[in-house]
Design a protein around this nucleic acid. Structure first.
Lengths: 119, 119
DNA sequence: TGGATACCTGCACAGCCGCGCAGGTATCCA
DNA sequence: TGGATACCTGCGCGGCTGTGCAGGTATCCA
């Protein structure tokens, strides 16, 4: 039952079985890491504001996002670049305007907690 | 209808009404900031692993958390210090052992998404 | 009472991230 | 065709954050 890796199996545990439960709960380190990165994308006020706006309003142009959030243009671009690289948002070109929207359902679901009042 | 702050109301918007919707969706900057900080607490693999373990297993001692996550003692202490200062976890002293548990229901709810398989 | 354990704290260091500016490209209007 | 708009990218700087080590305190066992 000892799911603890051998490298630290010699450490004295207070509640051995609970440690095993915890190891089982944590699961694959990569899994945890992936979720941490996902949360990391939401940990910046600028990015979070952009995502909340996108989720609530739908496709929005970069300059409109800049106006709505109070950020300047390049800052919005850089934030969207990160989010796009992470597969959270996608941009669609409409003439010289690029409208972004959220394409990751998991992130959209997480954002629901922030705007709980307005579903 | 223009909810845009006067300081940047002169900027030309692509879709004016959508900008207003976005501003309304974002709401109070402090609100967004608070959520960003909340997500920030989950953006570190160590802290996230600790919280997942705590949520799944319940009260756990610091040293057990260290064994389960593979972190060393002081790292766990510091992570828990942050989480405790943020009001996410609380520790209860039982002799020389301190067992921590999650006291913030919102964070616990967020963690649900990471362990979706085991509710 | 003496030793060991469990935990907390402060400090110094490396690494990362957000931020702003300048330059470049593609597209639309006159 | 010329000018303006909308957006993207690279670079450098300041600040924050995670990490490890050493020291200190409180508690349990013999």
């Amino acid at each position: 039952m000892h799911l603890v890796p051998a490298e630290r199996a010699d450490r004295r545990a207070i509640d051995g079985h609970r440690v095993c439960d915890a190891v089982a709960a944590i699961g694959e380190p990569d899994h945890v890491r992936a979720w941490a990165e996902r949360f990391s994308l939401l940990s910046d006020p600028g990015r979070l504001a952009l995502l909340v706006a996108l989720r609530q309003t739908g496709p929005l142009a970069v300059s409109d996002l800049a106006i709505a959030t109070g950020m300047n243009g390049p800052a919005v671009s850089q934030a969207l670049r990160l989010l796009r690289a992470a597969g959270v948002v996608a941009g669609e070109k409409d003439g010289r305007v690029v409208r972004y929207r959220i394409i990751d359902p998991i992130t959209a679901d997480l954002l629901r907690h922030c705007v709980c009042g307005s579903g």
